[in-house]
């Protein structure tokens, strides 16, 4: 019961933030001329030719707030404008390119979290010994790596030097043909999952070959971050009083670390997961661009350099809303994980 009211309250608080976000985005668009802004409202290329009508119909020369009202009205119905870059409505573009990015995220996120937690715990357990110093150096270097450079180097080695072993893109041309043929049912439009569902080995292998490098590129920076966080969190947890109590109870070191310390150490790491989402969103733009991996990151970049405002802003808006929702989920998760944060009183 209390959980539901908590979620409800948080959703209510979301509204002013989302309102602010949309006003902010819309404010940016107002920096453009009415002609340019017209792309935010149209849904087909034909309409481009008749801009005057568009401008009149949507009142693109009226004051700020009436325009905002019009715009937000149609945003809520799903019309985010027209994307010149890919010749389809922005909303459609998002859903068209989303599966690819989701695929990346689904493969990368667990990898990042689990590797980071594992390495971080190990580093804390072997504090000030070679393993700790080693992981620290790796973490700092990893954290300093420019993602785009790492991607290029990886491509250079694994695609260039190893003659096409791990190529860019999502699928090789032969497999592309297979995937778009009638025999192959695209359930999720995520190649790896679809390949499994279609029990098609070659496609799966091909998709995996294409996805490994982008995943690694995305992961390195974030693993470094989570690893350091987990390490310091573990160290803090291991310094607490209940650890001494646990040892005084006669528990083995393994149980003390795994049961008592780690559970507490994971709490800050979970709260950070919200930010992991943001980091992935950022990383995805660069990674997809380098590997020509056609997901929403790639689309966003194309839109940005070609000044396709509707796309860029639509992407930004989409991300913002998603991010806010993800943070809400993380906060709720946090209350599940840390008993102190639940809504209760004291027992006398």
């Amino acid at each position: 019961m209390e959980l539901r009211s908590y979620i409800f309250r948080r959703l209510l608080l979301l509204i002013p933030v989302l309102f602010g976000v949309t006003v902010f985005i819309f404010g940016i668009t107002m920096l453009f001329s009415p002609t340019q802004r017209a792309t935010l409202y149209i849904t087909s290329p034909q309409q481009m030719r008749d801009l005057a009508t568009i401008i009149a119909r949507y009142g693109l020369d009226r004051p700020f707030w009436s325009q905002y009202a019009t715009w937000i009205g149609q945003v809520l119905t799903g019309n985010l404008g027209w994307s010149n870059v890919v010749s389809m409505p922005v909303w459609n573009a998002i859903w068209h390119y989303l599966p690819a990015t989701l695929e990346l995220a689904i493969v990368a996120a667990p990898l990042i979290i689990l590797t980071g937690i594992f390495l971080g715990s190990k580093a804390a357990a072997h504090k000030d010994r070679p393993l700790d110093h080693g992981t620290r150096v790796i973490a700092i270097v990893g954290w300093s790596l420019p993602t785009f450079w790492l991607g290029l180097i990886l491509l250079m080695i694994f695609y260039g030097y190893f003659r096409g072993f791990l190529p860019p893109g999502r699928l090789s041309t032969q497999m592309e043909v297979v995937v778009t043929s009638a025999d192959f049912i695209r359930y999720t439009r995520m190649n790896t999952i679809d390949a499994i569902l279609n029990l098609n080995g070659p496609v799966l292998l091909d998709a995996l070959r294409h996805i490994i490098l982008p995943v690694i590129t995305l992961s390195v920076v974030n693993v470094a971050f989570i690893m350091r966080l987990m390490r310091s969190s573990m160290l803090e947890s291991l310094g607490k009083g209940y650890i001494l109590t646990a040892r005084a109870k006669g528990l083995s070191e393994r149980v003390v670390v795994n049961k008592h310390a780690r559970r507490n150490a994971l709490i800050p790491v979970i709260t950070i997961s919200g930010y992991l989402f943001a980091a992935l969103a950022n990383g995805v733009v660069i990674t997809e661009t380098i590997f020509s991996y056609k997901g929403i990151g790639w689309w966003a970049w194309q839109s940005a350099i070609r000044l396709d405002i509707a796309s860029v802003l639509g992407f930004a808006l989409f991300n913002a809303v998603l991010f806010v929702v993800v943070n809400l989920v993380v906060d709720v998760l946090y209350t599940r994980v840390d008993p102190r944060v639940r809504l209760g009183g004291t027992v006398q």
């Binding site: 009083g241 209940y242 005084a248 006669g250 528990l251 559970r263 994980v337 008993p339 102190r340």
Partner: peptide
Amino acid sequence: RSIRGNKISMVFQEPGAALNPVY
């Protein structure tokens, strides 16, 4: 370890700190 908590045990100063908050 088989003696700790079993034949010889200890109570600490700050009970709040001695108990693990997540269990």
